[in-house]
Design a protein around this nucleic acid. Sequence first.
DNA 1: TGATGAATTCAACAAATGTTGAAAATTATC
DNA 2: GATAATTTTCAACATTTGTTGAATTCATCA
Lengths: 220, 220
Amino acid sequence: MPDYTPPAPKSERILNAAEELFALHGFDGVTLRGIATAAGVDVALLNYHFGVKKKLFEVVFMRRAEILNEARLNALLEAEASSGGRPSLEQIVSAFLRPIQRFQLTGDEGWRNYLALVGWVNSSSVWGEEMMHKSFDPLVTRFIEALKKNMPDADPQRIYWAYQFFSGALTLTLAQTGRIGRLSDGLCRESDVETVYDLMIPFVVAGFRKLCMEHPEGGA
Amino acid sequence: MPDYTPPAPKSERILNAAEELFALHGFDGVTLRGIATAAGVDVALLNYHFGVKKKLFEVVFMRRAEILNEARLNALLEAEASSGGRPSLEQIVSAFLRPIQRFQLTGDEGWRNYLALVGWVNSSSVWGEEMMHKSFDPLVTRFIEALKKNMPDADPQRIYWAYQFFSGALTLTLAQTGRIGRLSDGLCRESDVETVYDLMIPFVVAGFRKLCMEHPEGGA
DNA sequence: TGATGAATTCAACAAATGTTGAAAATTATC
DNA sequence: GATAATTTTCAACATTTGTTGAATTCATCA
């Protein structure tokens, strides 16, 4: 007989339904009534708990961002600790990706939806920028510092660009568009979380090395 | 005194306005009245020329797809011809990217908007899939065949995944989110089309090499 | 039990949306 | 220059949208 007050389940059902629908259709493609129906509550309850629509979206977006940021930061700190402050490129990139994989491997539908949502927001030109900046850029800046330290001779511009390519490769995969499945005629599945990061990490690391650790005149 | 009948300018103004607004806000974030106002025409004209909203979007999306596909195919054919049917990895990747750069370098606002729109659709889970598939996958399949031929010993799965990462890196950059500018504090600008492909090509080529041309047990 | 406050639903609002049919204007054809 | 066809606008429609205030249910606790 636990004596804690269980959190109001309906407000969480709203957030979960909103998470899924926003991930599928984006901000403007979702109606408050659609969320309410999916959550099995009245429309007015959304306003009662979370205010206007945009505020609801922000709550959904921030809810798991902090958890993910903390997991990533811990992974980076651990990599730095276990390497005497000199983590390898693989370790840095892995610290950025493996926590995501861990959350996906739990099978939690919510995390899958959330990560697809991040993929969506990251590619959304107008107001995705503000939200990505506020919720992720502090941590990203920390990772980029680690990259700069790992490659002190690299042109910072190249590190930023390599990160941009890295970020694009990641977020497209998170977005769960199903395109690679169709393109490969079922040979590859985006849901194959077990192996995708085993491929993404070497791909990205090789790109970083080429871009940041070789001189431009390095050969054909 | 030219005797050709000039194409109805208003229907093109509609397409251009729609192109820009869809690229900025996505399908559901744009209203027909917003497009009509931006184009300086009446709302009903959109239905008259292009039918329902989704049809208008498809026209916008297909309009430049064929041009881009043709330019890319020609670039690939040229690379194959100039190499005796054995283009290098750099040549294949360049044939995929340089035509995009060429269109961007013309300074044509329409192409910039269109390419941002492609970036948006590519990351959009639900109905982006169908449109990307119909308009781009035939050409993409052709490129993947060239990649397979270039790396005959590679596991096809790895080629598809490497292409997925490639595609993500490209489309995030096309999406023009402005994020890298903010992250790098103005050091890098997405609009710097002159140099971004000079970096993207070696990044991607190195990733392909690592993933598809080395044995999995290849070293730490 | 009864009273207080929070959580939830009901009903409805004004505004905006996609779409359409008829009228007006423009262009092409003879 | 009259007629037909195309293009464009006008005005309005039925829905849907986000949002809100009042009413109702539920939980807490003296």
